[in-house]
Computed example of a mutant assay.
Amino acid sequence: MNQLETGILYIVPTPIGNLLDITYRALEILKNVDLIAAENIRHTNILLQNFNIKNHLILMNKDNEKKQSDNLIQKLKRGEKIALVSNAGTPIINDPGNILIQKCYFFNIKIIPLPGPCAAITALSASGINNNRFCYEGFLPSKKKTRCNLLFSLKEETRTMIFYESKYRILQSIEDIIEQIGKNRHIVIAREITKKWESIYGANAILILEWLKQDKYRYKGEMVIIVEGFKKSKKNNLSKKILDTFLILRNFLSLKQSVLITSKIHQISKNNLYQHVIKKKCDKTI
């Protein structure tokens, strides 16, 4: 199929709080497309009414994404122009729409993405934490065990980490970060970005938790958690106590299990301990 014979799907970011953050280009597209596929029609209507835009909206959320994507593809193949919007921010990121994007590529339908608001990037820019290398992890899992497993797997991630969290679990998540990543890791909490009650606060994990508990309004609304990446120690922090623990465990367990358990007990890098053991070649005579 010749791409010029099909319609166009526009990916249109919308404000994450402050309606003035909409771009002229986004307004022009929302006004002139044949229809708007919205994650929440009521929410999008508020935006459109604010700028006196009248257009046809159809619902596409996580519940009907697959079926609605097929419907939209048929419209695009007939040459219609469609704007895809989410509740707020840049569509697709933690929002429905990826199925539609994939189908557009399959049918060679043109996609035009617009630049615009994104809570994760906006918060990162003001965090003061190294932003040359970062990873976005989205919302932390709601179940404690799954959340802790994820955080533990990221303990030695050297890139800055970005998470989303709700007001209902923020205290538990910070407690889990302290337990799994470390109490001294620097964290920034960015709350209600671009909105009236916006606040950005940074400190080590313990102080962040204390700060949140001092005032319940500090964890109201939507939050971005930015966690400093792991920094390798320049000095050998493998004390005699740590090595003694490893040797005791090694009498009963495999090398891998002994290293893992020792690192958890003493809150140290398992890689450092493993490399030390390998360097000594004989782990039972450290």
Rank of each mutant, 00 (worst) to 15 (best):
Y274S: 07
N237S: 11
V259Q: 03
V224F: 03
K280H: 11
I278K: 15
K280G: 00
R250G: 03
K232S: 12
T245R: 07
T285W: 09
I225R: 09
N272A: 02
S239N: 09
K284G: 06
Q275F: 12
I242K: 02
K235Y: 08
K235Q: 11
N236D: 14
S258T: 07
K279T: 05
K256N: 12
N237Q: 12
K279E: 03
N272W: 01
N251V: 00
I268Q: 04
L247C: 11
K241W: 00
Q267L: 08
I226T: 08
F230H: 14
I261S: 04
N271P: 00
Q257F: 01
G229M: 11
S233Y: 04
L243G: 02
K234E: 12
N237H: 14
Q275G: 01
N236G: 03
Q267N: 15
F246K: 02
K240H: 03
S233F: 01
K264T: 09
M223G: 07
Q257G: 00
L255P: 00
L273Q: 10
D244W: 01
K270N: 11
K240W: 00
K284M: 08
L273P: 10
K270T: 01
V227P: 03
K279G: 01
I265D: 05
F230W: 15
K270H: 13
I261T: 11
L255E: 11
C282K: 15
D244G: 01
S254G: 10
T285Y: 14
N271H: 09
L260F: 14
S258Y: 07
K279R: 08
